[in-house]
Amino acid sequence: MTLTLALVPGVLLAGPAQAAADDPPTVVSLTFDDGNSDQMAAAAIMKAHSMPGTFYVNSGSIGQSGFLTRAQLDALAADGHEIGGHTLNHTDLTTLPNDEAKRQICLDRANLIDWGFAPRSFAFPFAMTSTAIAQRPELRLQQRTQPGRHRVPVRLRGLRQGRVRPTCQSLRDQGSRPGR
């Protein structure tokens, strides 16, 4: 199916367009970064139209003023939205030493798992990564695009709910995470 979008001042109209029989299916991902509390308005609209999305949150900000709360994350997940990782403190990973980049990713993921979510994907803050970060075997980031700016989030391989890789486990046990 092909989606046609028309912009009218202040209004976005969308509807199916005529597609050739051999056109591949169109996939549209609705994603929201940072866990800002005003994203609940978009979630309400999406719920009214049975449209799931992915909310990439920084677990270190959850519950702070201007950010989503744990209860709001639970409501988003109950409505069928994915809760994905976005680092602990929304830090540009390309500016950090490798150990701190790993800590930002692993502790964020551990928090989300501890809170009962099953994060399947991760969005780099500022949409920035580097080959050095993406190729770290302990992080097992599966890139969908080249290093640099990413419009498409990455999927996390081998880090399923309840199974944090051993290299992240020692960080997970340090207790330097919010919500404990």
Score class of each variant (00 low, 15 high):
161 Q>K: 07
55 F>C: 14
60 G>R: 01
157 R>T: 10
179 G>E: 03
70 R>L: 11
138 E>D: 13
79 D>I: 07
31 T>S: 05
158 G>M: 10
78 A>K: 15
115 W>F: 02
55 F>Q: 08
172 R>G: 03
39 Q>S: 13
75 A>Q: 12
64 Q>K: 07
134 A>W: 06
92 D>W: 07
61 S>M: 08
78 A>D: 11
30 L>G: 03
116 G>R: 15
173 D>E: 02
143 Q>V: 09
70 R>G: 00
171 L>H: 00
156 L>K: 05
168 C>S: 00
150 H>K: 14
90 H>V: 03
124 F>H: 12
108 D>P: 06
66 G>W: 01
150 H>V: 06
40 M>D: 02
24 P>S: 07
92 D>N: 15
48 A>R: 14
54 T>G: 00
20 A>G: 14
170 S>H: 06
116 G>K: 15
175 G>P: 00
128 M>F: 01
175 G>H: 11
33 D>F: 03
133 I>M: 04
112 L>I: 02
93 L>T: 01
30 L>H: 11
22 D>S: 09
159 L>R: 07
82 E>I: 08
14 A>V: 10
14 A>C: 02
127 A>M: 08
47 K>G: 08
163 R>H: 12
46 M>G: 00
127 A>D: 10
28 V>D: 09
105 I>H: 00
74 D>A: 09
68 L>V: 06
112 L>Q: 09
150 H>T: 09
168 C>N: 03
180 R>A: 04
35 G>C: 06
85 G>S: 11
41 A>T: 12
130 S>P: 13
113 I>P: 04
21 A>F: 06
79 D>W: 11
63 G>Y: 13
97 P>W: 08
41 A>E: 12
39 Q>V: 13
96 L>G: 00
68 L>D: 01
108 D>G: 14
129 T>L: 02
87 T>D: 05
124 F>G: 02
133 I>E: 06
148 G>H: 08
